[in-house]
Amino acid sequence: MDFLLRSPTRPGGIEPAPSEKGTGVDYATAWARRYPVRLARAMILDDLTVPAVQALARPHILGRDALERLDGPVIVTANHASHLDTAVLLAALPASRRHRTVVAAAADYFFDRHWKSVLSAFWLGAIPMERLKVNRRSAEVAASLIEEGWSLVIFPEGGRSPDGWGQEFKGGAAYLAKRCGVPVVPVHLRGTRAVLPKSSRGRPVRLRPGRVEVRFGHPMRPSQGEDARRFSARLEAAVAVLADEAETDWWSARLRASRDETPAIRGPETSPWRRAWELAESADPARRRRRTGSRHEGRTDWEASPPPRWPRNGH
């Protein structure tokens, strides 16, 4: 009778049947787009996620009208520096579109365990995506969803930035846009890393409420004969212009873009501390002012440097 009360043990030499619960790219997320689940997700998004984002990050949203003028599915691409990005971006989308959007999420991070897969699919409407290469299966899933009318949020950098600077855009978004013939909306997110940084070297991460900016750019389509790689580079450049705009102003950014002088979002290729320094420089407007106020023009010989504007102390 004992046998009936416990789960049976497996005789030696018998191979276990393959588990049907796939994880990673193989995880099937169709259940998460069925009507009752969508309803539940919409409620959670609107009543929990969006207010939380409002409280935590007070997003300042610019240029959303470009998106509001569009009908039908789009691909939204943004730079990626924090786990907060997805929530901020979803919160920034117009409500009608928010409820019909899926998020491409790293298969090896969000779908590595069964419970994580369920949670990601349910809460964010995530679909598993290979980080580094275009995986046939995940591309198929994404393409068919776009064709069904779903919009797709994707972070083409393939993961959160290790130091806050942008990384190279992978080709997935461009490939999907070309294949499905839908427009891509470049977006720049600023300040999410300050609210919720990526943990470094096991240091505990602290949530620090702050203010983020979400800048939507103009929708873009691949031009005639443009391959996915070129289009991807163009998307990256578009995000870089938005980033420049966030630092300066729209006009200066445009001018610089036209002169091909937009600073790369990938940052200068120098030592880690200088990359971090440059980044912090731009993140703190007060600091920028302070510094320009005391900076001496040019790098002349020290004896020839201009007289101090501030009286020497102790005389």
Partner: peptide, 25 residues
């Protein structure tokens, strides 16, 4: 207190005491 500490610091770095060029150099 110094009215503009940042300017004072920049100035001190620019006009060091003793036999040394400014930090910039």
């Amino acid at each position: 207190a110094l009215t503009d500490p940042d300017a004072a610091i920049a100035d001190a770095l620019e006009h060091p005491l003793g036999d040394t060029p400014p930090l910039r150099a």
